[in-house]
Design a protein around this nucleic acid. Structure first.
Length: 491
RNA sequence: GCCCCCAUCGUCUAGCGGCCCAGGACGGAGCCCUCUCAAGGCUCAAACAGGGGUUCGAGUCCCCUUGGGGGCACCA
């Protein structure tokens, strides 16, 4: 396959969304698969809606995901600039080409008039569309009015007859009656282009071979191919990705859903995932499989995805997002990390707590908790006790199931006795004598170890007991058991 | 309302006319392992929306119905 040039072209109007990440992922995979380039282009032509910091968030988000672009606003490239507001002249000269060629025309209608027309059309139950008033103005007359400084927009002169056949790689030919199409605005009165002009011009100028975008563009797809054809350009391969639906499957995933997801520890915004304890590997894998049909072995890192990716296996039907699956992929990829890597990734989650986390200790703790982590921040719940001086167990939790406080105290005392007789509490040396005690005492392993678990870790659920004791160290372990025995004796 | 797109287990999907009494993954149920929680292993339940065609043969092709989704801006 020839090297593909792909692009993700988000508008900096809010937080970077899951859908943007998925388009970027597929773009990246296609480009890397074919030895081509993946490009970031910022579509900031709606000055009103542009949000400060949004562009940076997009770049940070892509980098966090590991989707490094080959060309973009901050790193440049041979086809720049990569920010549409900096390409104003390019769009204006292209708009002129269309006007001169009879494919577009200046329109002097005011927004107020347009709104009135729309209202009347709706009242008559007609399709709201431009009524063509300025379409029939003589070109010389129009040019004169433009030159005189009258406000205008440039509209595409859509044919009223025949049909437009647009080819989508996943859906085949899509045939539309031209009467259904509107004379869309290409250049706004502020001199900036709309998407319909800007994206077509840039994709051509930047040599984009495959346009991947959301299915919400399907309705203006015929317009876009008409624009490209009016210029006489070769069309890229068009691929409209299925939409993401709310977890319920009811409706398109929206920014509003972000707030709802946040309450459950999830999000639809890329910037949040790191903080929530998700790792890029997990997020990428999760996103990749919504809209890409992989038969088997669906746990993949970026390189494996590149290996297996093909635009032929993309799917056309909408996909409801499923956060449980995110959990699964996240946990799975966490388990694939090396101790050193995982340890380093966990560490930041302890900042802000009063715990003093030493790297050396954390490295010993990591293997004990790795397969218990769904998200990185779970390390707080599983490993905090390693870094505390005392653990303050709940007295009731110290009483073993089926036993009373007195019996439990007896077990704690005996355990203290056995362990204090040892030079160290490495699990290989501490476990055998404790097992022997379980045998001779007649108590069950779960009763004895359960008491010790609560005594030593302060919690009912913890990593394996003896391995944990080994990390905590003999002195602290003995002290914690002694205190537990005291508590039990006072009950 | 009009236009467009989509349609296999609850969810994401494999399937591109016979290999399918439909495979995988998540989730669910059960069993095993087990010092808790996990992880891991094994097993089970769970789907081709409905109706017409085409064909020797249809989940796979065509049409209709139904359902879902998207769009109808000087927003992207």
């Amino acid at each position: 396959m020839k090297p593909a040039r792909t692009r993700v072209a988000p508008s900096p109007t809010g937080h970077m969304h899951l859908a943007t990440a998925r388009v970027a992922l597929y773009d990246y995979l296609l480009a890397k698969k074919t030895g081509g380039q993946f490009i970031l282009r910022i579509e900031d032509t709606d000055v009103q809606r542009t949000v400060d910091g949004a562009e940076q968030e997009i770049m940070d988000g892509l980098r966090w995901l590991g989707l490094n672009y080959d060309e973009g606003p901050d790193i440049g490239g041979p086809y720049g600039p990569y920010r549409q507001t900096e390409r104003r002249d390019i769009y204006q000269s292209h708009a002129k080409i269309l006007v001169d060629g009879g494919h577009a025309y200046p329109c002097f209608c005011t927004p107020e008039r347009l709104e009135k027309v729309r209202q009347e059309q709706m009242k008559r139950k007609e399709n709201p569309r431009y009524d063509g008033t300025c379409r029939i103005i003589d070109p010389d007359e129009a040019a004169r009015r433009v030159a005189s400084g009258e406000k205008y927009v440039i509209r595409f002169k859509m044919s009223h007859e025949g049909t437009t056949t647009a080819h989508d790689h996943l859906r085949g030919d899509i045939v539309t009656e031209n009467q259904q199409l509107n004379d869309y605005v290409l250049l706004k009165s502020d001199g900036l282009p709309t998407y319909h002009l800007a994206a077509m011009v840039d994709d051509h100028e930047m040599g984009i071979t495959h346009v991947l975008r959301g299915a919400e563009w399907l309705s203006t797809f015929p317009l876009h191919v008409n624009v490209v054809r009016a210029f006489g350009w070769e069309e890229p391969v068009w691929i409209h990705l299925s939409l993401f639906l709310k977890p319920s499957g009811k409706g398109k995933l929206s920014k509003r859903d972000g707030a709802i997801a946040m309450k459950d520890g999830y999000s639809v915004f890329i910037k949040d995932f790191g903080e929530l304890g998700f790792i890029p590997e997990g997020v990428n894998n999760w996103i990749a499989l919504m809209g890409w049909g992989v038969a088997e072995d669906d746990v993949m890192d970026l390189d494996q995805m590149i290996e297996r990716f093909s635009v032929d296996h993309l799917t056309a039907s909408p996909a409801a997002i499923n956060f449980q699956k995110l959990d699964h992929f996240n946990a799975t990829h966490i388990r694939l990390l090396t101790n050193e890597d995982l340890s380093a990734r966990i560490k930041p989650y302890f900042t802000g707590t009063d715990l003093e986390v030493r790297d050396e200790t954390l490295l010993k703790v990591t293997p004990l908790i790795r397969e218990r982590l769904v998200t990185l921040d779970d390390c707080l719940a599983f490993a905090s006790f390693f870094f505390r001086e005392t653990v303050g167990p709940n007295p009731e939790d110290l009483v073993a199931k089926g036993l009373d406080a007195k019996q439990s105290a007896e077990i704690a005392r005996k355990a203290y006795e056995i362990l204090s007789g040892l030079k160290e509490v490495a699990h290989t040396v501490a476990e055998p004598p404790m097992r022997a005690y379980v045998e001779e005492s007649g108590f069950s392993a779960s009763q004895v170890f359960g008491i010790l678990r609560v005594a030593v870790t302060g919690q009912k659920v913890s990593p394996p007991l003896f391995e944990s004791m080994e990390v905590i160290g003999r002195e602290k372990v003995l002290e914690r058991i002694r205190r537990a025995a005291e508590i039990l004796e006072k009950m």
